[in-house]
């Protein structure tokens, strides 16, 4: 069984937001909903040594899932391959998972009355394709694959670089790893 993960190389990301748009189009999201925002830290430093980092955010597909535990209907689920998804038929829109998610990755869809989130483009992954945001990233800043496959690019990057996970101190064990070129300046 695969263990899907994503590595985001912030040294490559230029903050073009094409992943945000590709995700929004693929998932047919309303105007006021975004699964994949790209935030910007900086510019920091003193001229001429200025630095800026763009950080694509998405569902972290945690190993210890506070959102799944919080869901009273059993609509939030974690598959064996690590993908956390929502069974929309079961969701009642109580927003317990929205509040439980430390990453703000879940959004309440007012039109449908349910909560929605990034599911690593489950429909595409099941057909052997990569998520739309990864496909649309022309800088190759997003890398998706099987962590348990030592030959996969994600496994190689994770093992060869110093990667960090956001809010790792909460113990949720995210499956999204960041390569920070400028981690010292992130704080």
């Amino acid at each position: 069984m695969a263990r899907y993960a994503m590595v985001i190389d912030t040294r490559r990301c230029i903050g073009c937001q094409s992943c945000t748009v590709a995700c929004k189009v693929h998932n047919e999201l309303p105007v006021d909903m975004i699964y994949n925002p790209v935030t910007t830290v900086g510019p920091t430093g003193v001229f001429p040594n200025l630095h800026m980092v763009h950080i694509p955010l998405l569902c972290m597909h945690c190993e210890n899932t506070p959102c799944v535990d919080a869901c009273p209907t059993g609509a939030s689920l974690r598959r064996e391959d690590g993908i956390v998804w929502i069974d929309e038929k079961k969701c009642v829109g109580c927003k317990a998972c929205v509040m439980a998610c430390p990453y703000g990755a879940r959004i309440f869809n007012q039109e449908k009355g349910i909560v929605q989130k990034c599911d690593f483009c489950l429909d595409r992954v099941e057909k052997g394709n990569i998520p739309r945001c990864v496909q649309s990233c022309h800088q190759k800043a997003r890398i998706f694959g099987d962590l348990d496959d030592p030959n996969s690019e994600v496994a190689k990057l994770k093992n060869s670089h110093h990667t960090v996970r956001l809010l790792d101190e909460l113990g949720s064990k995210p499956s999204v790893f960041y390569i920070y070129g400028l981690e010292a300046r992130m704080k």
Partner: peptide
Amino acid sequence: ELGRPFQAFRVFMNPKSIL
């Protein structure tokens, strides 16, 4: 408060959830 109030019976389904 639910997004789908007519499906409220589903909140009884997950014994692990505090709700």
